[in-house]
Write a protein that binds this DNA or RNA. Structure first.
Length: 419
RNA sequence: GUGGACGUCGCCUAGCGGUCAAGGCGCCAGGCUGUGGCCCUGGAGAUCGCGGGUUCGAAUCCCGCCGUCCACCCCA
């Protein structure tokens, strides 16, 4: 098929038949966020590019090759939002939310843009549900957001998920660890992949995350970061683990887990579905105690997560989890003669005013064709207006499921459908 | 950004150098001139992703582009 226009690469139309999944995920997310005491926030689709460059990190892939950056007519450098946390933090400061009771708990569902190479479950425009709890450094909050994320997947019926957890330290202890890691790698650079040689220079923590075969023995021998946390970070981590155990949330320690944003401190986590793929993470997040300060605010600890709606739906479909059945069509109004056309239109209109989902047949087709349509549209009832009904002021109400039908006055028909 | 597979009516698929590109689903109509789901019959619907090349001749071979998918990179 050759079309003059098609949706841009990596974007998609969400058709009516998929909307029940979207509604289901969005409604569940909104309900849980509210249940956990979070308030909704919406931020602009674009922000100053510098906001993301500054917070996500100059050297990260997101900034280096995935951001949609453009200049507006006034010459401002803007970027389509490549992640959800920085804009929420910007809004926190812009609206003086330090003055609210801390922590401030916020959630969002928003489109996210990254210039990636598309694959199943990976898009250039995707949507994330995320929460941010800002203004409190307690490990209880880390546990809270993880519980919220975990609950979301549970309520949707996803099974076999694994929660992976790590701590990557903070500004006190991480630099020393990075130095240790560098020292360890220095004389092994010949035996690791070319990517890792670059990571060694640019982003040493990512060395631990390499999947190349030759690098595995080197990674296995590397010092785990959790052995080199400072006292405060180690305590935070162990308290978080106690919380998760107390909440009955199963997790796996993943000492190699690091994330692609520079702003994370201490806690990082990801949730993966049972079938592994290259881009399988359903959601992830962590603590970012330095981010607000980086944006010019006071030192303010915070923690949050983001989870991809498209990936959730992909996994719901893989696990054959069906969204709750939707309302559907109550009535299909058919008419037999052109004289009844207006009466049919008015009947459909009246039904809708009564809250009954109704459509009217169009095109003066044969009754047979109209009945076929009623069936194909999945209507519960076909309402038939013919010459006889028109003259008598009645309508024939046919229940499509079993073919039972009865001719009755209009008022009675409306009352019956209203049920 | 790197490597690979694939792209035929709305959907799924056959055809893989030589008549008007075939079938199934779906759609429309008829068989049943006031009635659906099953069945039967017919119809509409395809510049064979786009552009170029090779050839007497290309959906079929070659190249480029676009798109989808897979593995990297990275991430949701």
């Amino acid at each position: 098929m050759s079309l003059r226009y098609q949706a841009p690469r990596g974007t998609q139309d969400i058709l009516p038949e998929d909307q029940p999944y979207w509604d289901w995920v969005r409604e569940t997310a909104a309900r849980l966020a509210t249940l956990f005491g979070y308030g909704r926030i919406d931020t602009p689709i674009f922000e100053p590019a510098a906001l993301f460059i500054r917070t996500t990190g100059e050297a990260t892939d997101i900034v280096q090759k995935e951001m949609y950056v453009f200049h507006d007519r006034g010459g401002q450098e803007l970027a389509l939002r490549p992640e959800g946390t920085a804009p929420v933090c910007r809004a926190y400061l812009e609206h003086g939310m330090q003055a609210r009771p801390q922590p401030v708990r916020l959630w969002y569902i928003a489109p996210i843009f990254r210039y990636d190479r598309p694959q199943a479950g990976r898009y250039r425009q995707h949507h994330q549900f995320g929460v941010e709890a800002i203004g409190d450094g307690s490990p209880l909050l880390d546990a809270e957001v993880i519980e919220l994320l975990w609950r979301l997947y549970q309520e949707l019926g996803l099974s076999g998920l694994s929660l992976r957890l790590n701590s990557i330290g903070d500004r006190n202890c991480r630099p020393a660890y990075v130095q240790l890691l560098r020292d360890y790698y220095r004389d092994k650079l010949d035996s690791v992949c070319t990517d890792c040689r670059q990571r060694y220079e640019r982003n040493p923590l990512r060395l631990l995350d390499c999947k190349q075969e030759p690098c595995q023995p080197v990674i296995a021998g590397a010092p785990p970061i959790t052995d080199h946390l400072c006292r405060e970070c180690a305590q935070h981590f162990s308290q978080l683990r106690e919380c998760l155990e107390g909440l009955g949330i199963p997790y796996e320690l993943e000492p190699r887990l690091v994330r692609g944003f520079d702003y994370y401190t201490r806690t990082v986590f990801e949730v993966h579905p049972p079938v592994e793929g290259a881009q399988s993470a359903l959601g992830g997040g962590g603590r970012y105690d330095g981010l607000i300060q980086e944006l010019g605010g006071p030192p303010t600890p915070a923690v949050g997560f983001g989870t991809g709606i498209e990936r959730i739906i992909l996994n719901l479909k893989r696990q054959e989890a069906l969204p709750p059945a939707e309302g559907g069509l109550d009535a299909f109004v058919a008419y037999q003669t052109p004289e009844a056309r207006l009466a049919a239109l008015r009947l459909a209109s009246r039904l809708r005013r009564e809250g009954i989902a109704a459509v009217v047949a169009t095109g003066d087709r044969s009754l047979k064709a109209q009945m076929r349509q009623a069936d194909a549209r999945g209507a519960r009832y076909a309402l038939i207006l013919g010459q006889r009904e028109l003259e008598a002021g009645t309508v024939t109400v046919r229940r499509l499921a079993d073919g039972q039908q009865q001719t009755m006055p209009l008022d009675q028909a409306v009352a019956q459908l209203r049920r």
